[in-house]
Design a protein around this nucleic acid. Structure first.
Lengths: 202, 202
DNA sequence: ATAAATAAACAACATCGTGTTCATTATTTA
DNA sequence: TAAATAATGAACACGATGTTGTTTATTTAT
């Protein structure tokens, strides 16, 4: 029952390090940041940095986890029971994600667009989305001539999902979250031809 | 009409640098490579490297362009006139790409999977695919209720395309190029529900 | 074949960022 | 108020980068 009393100094220092780091990522990109940059911005000694993080990648990992756990929360809260492959459900998730991202848009921009050297971030996001889409999966009943593997389909959906998302960020959100989500759903569900308004012969 | 006689030494040196670089990328990943590594492997003086390339990113750029111009060739040769959104055409392109990649699979693996810090590569590949898909585009006639923006649809297709492609590489090509391409086409064209064998109500 | 041109090698150097060590100072907790 | 410990500051070794000369080897042109 001993509440771990973390030294206030530690909390303060860690906070200012992360704050500085987030700012710098958005300003100059991850690669260009030096530990000294972070120390300067956080107004601490460079040495102090090493008291709390192993190195730059370590800090990045921690920050990514922090950021993504918020996204995870957002996604978890989405109503998405039963069959997740129905139109409205997919649409709901995408919309929730897009709106959440809007809250930290420049940071997500830096993480996903500008500096995609920050590879693990995209991968981790995909894992989150994938986990959601995987809920309540129902395999094809019987053998449809078109039946595809579950893995491939999941990958397909997640990739398209992330692609649209990044496109949306990159282009400064040209459509509303609702519009994007709706169009995405339409293509996914009805196929690209019908979605584009082209008649499709059976 | 003066054939530029490039000094043989230059050709030799450049070749061995690139060869060394390709090998090292596959062995330890781009980030971990030092100029000295390249010089050692290419059996040249470290200084000589700087006689031909500015720095590591410069070398990477050159090599990427080299590699991607081959891909470009492959894609250009694909029969893909008229409306590119018909099933078989899309399938054809994907299959051609997958087969081409198979020829340098470990290198593509390093470029796209292992070390996705090499961001521009994926982006450039996407641009190539996108360019191909963009050929002979016909916008929706009339206003279908589902009509989506061309840009969004292109982004959707390219993202799903690249996602499947990377998935395929990452998982050590679990299906044949033909099977993957066919399944991809089915999902794209008929929507994920019907492709997965789930009845879709209109 | 030989001389001029130039690529490559070799050594040296300044620069920068990293990560560590250690003694000292400041702050917090008990 | 004392003990614990976080933060500072200086110093250091290390490794990689990119540059500058000088010397050697190879190639091209005469």
């Amino acid at each position: 029952m001993n509440k771990k009393k973390t030294d206030l100094r530690i909390v303060r220092t860690k906070q200012s390090i992360r704050k500085a780091f987030y700012e710098l990522i958005q300003e100059k990109g991850y690669e260009a940041i030096t530990i000294q940059d972070i120390a300067d911005r956080a107004m601490i000694n460079r040495n102090t940095f090493y008291l709390h993080y192993q190195n730059k990648p370590d800090l990045l990992d921690t920050c990514m986890d922090e950021l993504l756990s918020e996204l995870q929360q957002t996604v978890v809260l989405c109503p998405f029971h039963m069959n997740p492959f129905r139109l409205s459900r997919l649409e709901t998730v995408m919309q929730a994600v897009l709106e959440h991202i809007s809250g930290s848009i420049t940071l997500y921009y830096a993480m996903l667009v500008e500096e995609s050297r920050i590879y693990p971030f995209r991968a981790k996001m995909e894992a989150i989305i994938k986990g959601k889409l995987d809920e309540g999966w129902n395999p094809a009943q019987g053998d449809s001539p078109l039946a595809v593997s579950k893995e491939l389909l999941l990958e397909y959906l997640v990739s398209a999902f992330m692609g649209i998302l990044i496109w949306w960020i990159k282009n400064d959100r040209p459509l509303s979250a609702a519009e994007v989500s709706s169009q995405f759903s339409n293509i996914v569900t009805y196929g690209h031809l019908r979605a584009a308004g082209i008649a499709v012969e059976e």
